[in-house]
Design a binder for these strands. Structure first.
Lengths: 244, 244
DNA sequence: CGGCTACTTGAATACTTTCAATCCGCGTGG
DNA sequence: CCACGCGGATTGAAAGTATTCAAGTAGCCG
């Protein structure tokens, strides 16, 4: 199933940059394939050399780092529209992996190199950097949470952030519900806790009527309280995201 | 004291990209000023709108985020050659501050906008993204340390990483010694620990003859052992860094 | 029906923080 | 020249927070 960029439904979402016809043509020449992978399989493996850039089209994935002792840290949760593999494409090799946590489909962009893109389309290049810098803002918040947040704050923050990112992509169900395929283990690896403790915190959050995760769905009962508890505020989205 | 880019001594260091004469000319047109700030003062304050891009020329600074309750998280340690303020320049406003921890001098680059740079000099633009992506690799490692590392690992990793970054800049003294103006509190805020605990870990590291911090100087006694304990490996420097 | 993975719960343990007291070096002002 | 105040560092003890270990439940797939 090859989806031409011209008829891409993701591109139309409000978070993403509108494209001029020229830009769209350019991007179309980059897309070389569209692939699917099953849950739990690696899209990029630690140590891979080079490789294409992808755009996550459908499904969820995580960027994660394996530590020596069998534990792992989830560095980021990847949602539809997110770019995957720029690091390995630009730097040659990386220390993290990208793993699908649900069935996933991806646009493969190896029609042109990044260098060529920068040469030929400065606006698009700038949008990529801008998106990247925006992601760094989100990373800063994650760092602060891991360094200084309590267990409840870490998990609550992740919930709210993920909810908002889904909302920007038009993927929330009603007003308070969204898909949430992360298991306790995923949450633990993302927040630097043990899965046992995550389970306890989740129980507490249910107890306190803040939020519930059940059957792959997140329900936020009391967003205001949760945002207050976690000092959450959404990252300012100045630039609409580049999507390739 | 205005230092023209053509005679900039930083630029000559091995970590940095060599410049063509044309690029150097271009960068020269961006540099508009050279300023100094005292230790403990903010270079960029949370919430600032817009603002110039800087290059840290001399001294140490940190990028940090104030949490609601008076605690703070150091997001990154900034060393000479590092770019400061790209986020606020591109996104308009940010949630972190940048604070000098020693006396600092900075190149001020507001001669041209980032958009103009991307339009007129694709190679330089690409080098900026490349440097940025490299920094993200370092951030990934910090995230993993905060999430999964023990206290000793967090601090040891920071020491080794900082040592190597200084070495790349030609700022290490002998084979095992480098300047290290971070106090216990700085280390605590960077590693997500209390300063009391940092002091204990530092005492342990001295006890075990791994490393010592004293009088603003770091001495790494046993790099191999420390690297082993912290699973440290330097970030692969594929691209030499862009400096503006 | 196994056998698997995910989840839950309890108890013991380990790591880290908080609180409190003390010490040290340094610059200021009398 | 010395007392004073201050920030940074150290140390001990008590209190929390989160982990590990262990056992058991529930749902799902071959």
């Amino acid at each position: 199933m090859f989806i031409p960029c011209a008829s891409c439904s993701l591109r139309a979402k409000a978070v993403f940059r509108p494209f001029s016809g020229e830009e769209l043509d350019f991007i179309s020449t980059m897309k070389s394939d569209h692939v699917t992978v099953r849950a739990k399989t690696d899209i990029i493996r630690r140590g891979d050399v080079g490789g294409p850039i992808y755009t996550l089209f459908e499904g969820w994935a995580v960027r994660l780092m394996d530590l020596g002792d069998g534990s792992q840290q989830i560095l980021d949760v990847l949602l539809p529209g997110d770019m995957i593999g720029l690091e390995s494409a630009m730097l040659g090799t990386v220390k993290h992996s990208v793993r699908a946590i649900t069935p996933v489909s991806l646009c493969v962009l190896e029609g042109r190199s990044v260098a060529e893109l920068f040469d030929r389309n400065a606006k698009l290049a700038l949008a990529i950097l801008q998106t990247r810098v925006e992601e760094e803002q989100r990373t800063d918040a994650r760092l602060a949470m891991l360094g200084r947040g309590s267990a409840l704050q870490r998990i609550g923050y992740l919930m709210l952030e993920t909810y908002d990112r889904l909302q920007q992509r038009g993927m929330v169900n009603g007003g308070t519900t969204c898909p949430f395929p992360l298991t306790r283990r995923h949450l633990a690896d993302a927040s630097g806790l043990s899965s046992v403790h995550v389970a306890r915190i989740l129980a507490e959050m249910r107890e306190r009527k803040l939020a519930v995760v059940e059957g792959g769905v997140l329900i936020v009962f009391d967003r205001a309280a949760l945002a207050e508890l976690t000092a959450y505020s959404p990252v300012y989205v100045a630039a609409r995201r580049a999507i390739l």
